[in-house]
Design a protein around this nucleic acid. Structure first.
Length: 432
RNA sequence: GCGGUAGUGGUGAAGUGGUUAACACACUGGUUUGUGGAUCCAGCAUACGAGGGUUCGAUCCCCUUCUACCGCCCCA
């Protein structure tokens, strides 16, 4: 923190070499696994027309009202950095007519990338963060709900995560929600003045959100509030029970939390969160959340099409991995370090490293004209398996020293052999 | 948007209203001038987040600001 002329924007992070390896590991695991479930990747723009998000997330949601990272561009277009992945995917789904008959149904896709929310950074929360998510369009089957949940669980298990739990709930269909909403209002109305001020406004705009309040004053009432599960329509009940049945059939453990709601307004029927019970992430226990939505595709001008999806918070996932010591990405190790002594060997040293690399080995050399000792120290620090040393004398004889750093044994090899037959040279000298 | 804590060199970390701001690690060089992980020696010249103020004098006091961390709200 010397005298930084520039520093990164608030709530953003520089991911450096010591972290990107782990990120790549997580991302490639996701790509591989989601591929097993026959999901393909979609990459949509990082920014969209503001309305793409406001229309989908709901005008009363916090994401829209206060967390949108938006601006007007030079053409005076109202642009927003995407706060979540679903809206862009749905927009692309409609715009590219992926509902057409030539595409499989359900249409299954995943995405990986940065999201933006204008809020105060704190534990597990940033202005630029990253999500891995997936969406599936065109099927109402409860089996698809379960497949989505199973895929997330599978993903976390593949990464080695422990102490996670699946929490599910249903919001019912429109008629269920309307009925429940009214019941909830009827129940809470008499106690309006005893609720927190936040919840008093919630009661007006989005009563379900009261259920999510952590304020003790509200929780008193939430405890005895009517349950959505008692207001489900016949269809929603059927869907809900079937989801549970299939989850059980797959031996996926889950909890039901009838007070769980979602921050975005577009969900209905099955919703779920994957949480950690690890204390280290207390403020950010939810590492993945998702659910069904039915109105989105038509909202964007497409045919009435149900969808379901989830989003995983990369940063939260990674901090959980760290908390559980699952960050063991193999350390980068050099196969060869080329030590060169004297300016005259500069060119040949370059030829040697390149030759070594052409065989597929990881190779490095010195570019600072340091002493042989210093170069060997570097080789050692990088846990290089071999060191090739070349000085004026070797150069004159067209040879080099090849040292096995584990055994300490050193031999003289012809440069021509090194260029053409390196693998054999080191085979004969033991471990590669 | 609100609240709390913090900000010393590449890193960790002492410290004080007043001459050269500890120590450790790392790094660089040296220890028979071309060979590693040990010891010892030396170096590390642009360190007290930034900007104001109080004071004879501030890294240490006050204000502002920026940033980080934590909490609220909400969420990934």
């Amino acid at each position: 923190m010397a005298k930084p002329i520039f520093q990164r924007p608030k709530g953003t992070a520089d991911l450096l070499a010591d972290q990107t390896a782990l990120w790549q590991h997580v991302e490639s695991t996701a790509r591989l696994l989601f591929g097993d479930y026959n999901f393909s990747e979609t990459r949509t723009p990082i920014f969209e027309n503001f309305d793409v998000f406001s229309r989908s997330a709901g005008d009363t949601s916090d994401v829209v009202t206060k967390e949108m990272y938006d601006f007007h561009d030079k053409g005076d277009r109202h642009i927003a950095l995407r706060p979540e992945g679903t809206a862009g995917i749905v927009r692309a789904y409609v715009e590219n007519k992926l509902y057409g008959p030539e595409f499989d149904k359900p249409y299954k896709t995943f995405y990986i990338g940065p999201m933006f929310r204008y809020e105060r950074p704190q534990a597990g929360r940033f202005r630029q963060f990253h999500q891995i998510g997936a969406e599936a369009f065109g099927s109402m089957s409860p089996a698809l709900d379960v497949e989505i949940i199973a895929m997330v669980v599978d993903f976390f298990k593949t990464l080695g995560l422990k102490k996670i739990k699946v929490v599910i709930n249903t919001l019912g269909d429109q008629s269920s929600r309307d009925a429940y909403r009214q019941a909830l209002i009827d129940y809470l109305k008499p106690h309006v003045n005893e609720l927190s001020s936040d919840s008093q406004t919630r009661l007006e705009q989005n009563p379900l959100r009261v259920l999510d309040s952590k304020d003790p004053r509200d929780q008193v009432f939430v405890a005895d509030a009517p349950s959505i599960l008692d207001y489900l329509s016949e269809n929603s009940t059927k869907h809900w029970t079937q989801v549970q049945a299939i989850l059980r059939a797959l031996n996926i453990e889950f909890e039901i939390d009838a007070t769980m709601v979602r921050g975005l307004d577009y969900y209905n029927d099955t919703i779920f969160e994957i949480m950690t019970v690890d204390d280290t992430l207390k403020g950010a226990a939810t590492i993945a959340g998702g659910g069904r939505y039915s109105g989105l595709v038509s909202e964007f001008g497409g045919p009435e099409t149900p969808g379901i999806g989830f989003g995983i918070g990369m940063e939260r996932l990674l901090s959980l991995l760290k908390a559980q010591n699952l960050t063991l990405v193999p350390e980068k190790q050099l196969d060869f370090y080329v030590v060169n002594i004297g300016e005259d060997t500069d060119v040949v040293a370059m030829q040697i490293v390149q030759a070594i690399r052409s065989f597929g080995y990881v190779a490095e050399r010195d570019y600072l004209g340091r002493s042989a000792k210093a170069q060997f120290k570097s080789a050692d620090r990088h846990h290089s398996k071999f060191v090739v040393t070349i000085g004026d004398e070797e150069l004159a004889n067209q040879v080099a020293s090849l040292k096995n750093m584990n055994t300490g044994q050193q031999q003289t090899v012809n440069l021509s052999d090194l260029y053409t037959d390196l693998p054999t040279l080191i085979e004969s000298k033991g471990d590669k």
